[in-house]
Amino acid sequence: MAITGYLAEFSLAEMFQFLEQGCKTGLLNICALTGSGVEGQKNHYIWFNQGRIVAAASSLNQQGLVTMIGQRGWLGDRAASRLSQTCTIGTPMGLCLKAQGALTAEQLKLLFYSQVMRQVCALFELGDGWFQFDPKVPLPAAEMTGLSAPATEVTLAGLRALKDWSALADKLPDSTSALISIIDGKPQLRLNQVEWQVWEFTSGSVSLSAIANQLRLPVEKIQQVAFRLVVSALAEEIPLIAEPISLTPETEPAELSVAPTEASAVSQSFLQNLVGFLRGKV
C-alpha cells in the first residue's frame, strides 16, 4: 500500500527513519510545494532498497546517471548507452560500467555523493511538500551506481547542514524530556562533537534543558541534536514528570487519591466474568 502525506505533518527525517527501520524497498516521490524554500526542481525521486538509499533523481526518464557521467566528461552519452546495453538486466549501471573498465571505484563514489548525498540532503530545507512512497516500483538499474547509504546517515548529514529549523519546531523533543539510548553499546554512525556530548546523557534521567546548562549551549541547539539522535534511531525521547506530586485535583476519585503504588492483582475469575459481561455488549 502506498503511503502519502505532507512533510509538514510527517517530516522527511521521520519518513527516512520509518523507511530504514521498516527495511522498505520502493520509490519515494517528493513534490515540493510552492514557496517551500527550495528553488529549482519540483519533483524529487529517491529509491530505497531494504531501507537504504540506492539512487535519487529529479525525473523518471532513467537518464540522470548517464547525464552526470557525461557532464564530468568520463563517458559520452552514446558510449554509456551502448555499454549499458550489454549489462545484465537488474545490474546497477555504475557497477556494470565499472566491470567493463569504463569507470573507477572512486568515480562511482563521486557520482553517488553528487546524486544522493548532495541532492537528498538539500531536501531537508523543504518547508513543505507532498510525498508518496510506493513499495511496488522496481529499482531503476539505469540510475544506480551500485552504492547505497543508510537513510539515517543521509538524515544526519542533512539535518547537520540545516539552517532553518522552523518547519521542525513542533517535532523537536521537549526541553523537559530526557533521552534514552535504544542501541547496545556506542553508535556506529559517525557523530560530531556535540552529538557525542549529548549522547553521553542518554541515560533517561537528565532533561534537555539540564544538558544545555551543563554543556553551556542554547537549549534549542540541544533539542536539535536530540532530534538528530532520535531520528537516527540511536535514542528515544522520554518525557519527565513536569511537576512534583503536591496537588490533588477536585475531580480525583478516591481510588487514586493515595500516593502512587503498584496496582494489586485482579483474580482470573474477575477477568473471566468481565469478558463474559462485555461479550454481552458486543
Binding site: 514528570i241 503536591s246 485535583p249 502512587p260
Partner: peptide, 8 residues
C-alpha cells in the same frame, strides 16, 4: 504535558 497525574 506529562505531570504527576500521568504517574499516578
Amino acid at each position: 504535558r506529562f505531570d504527576f497525574m500521568w504517574d499516578i
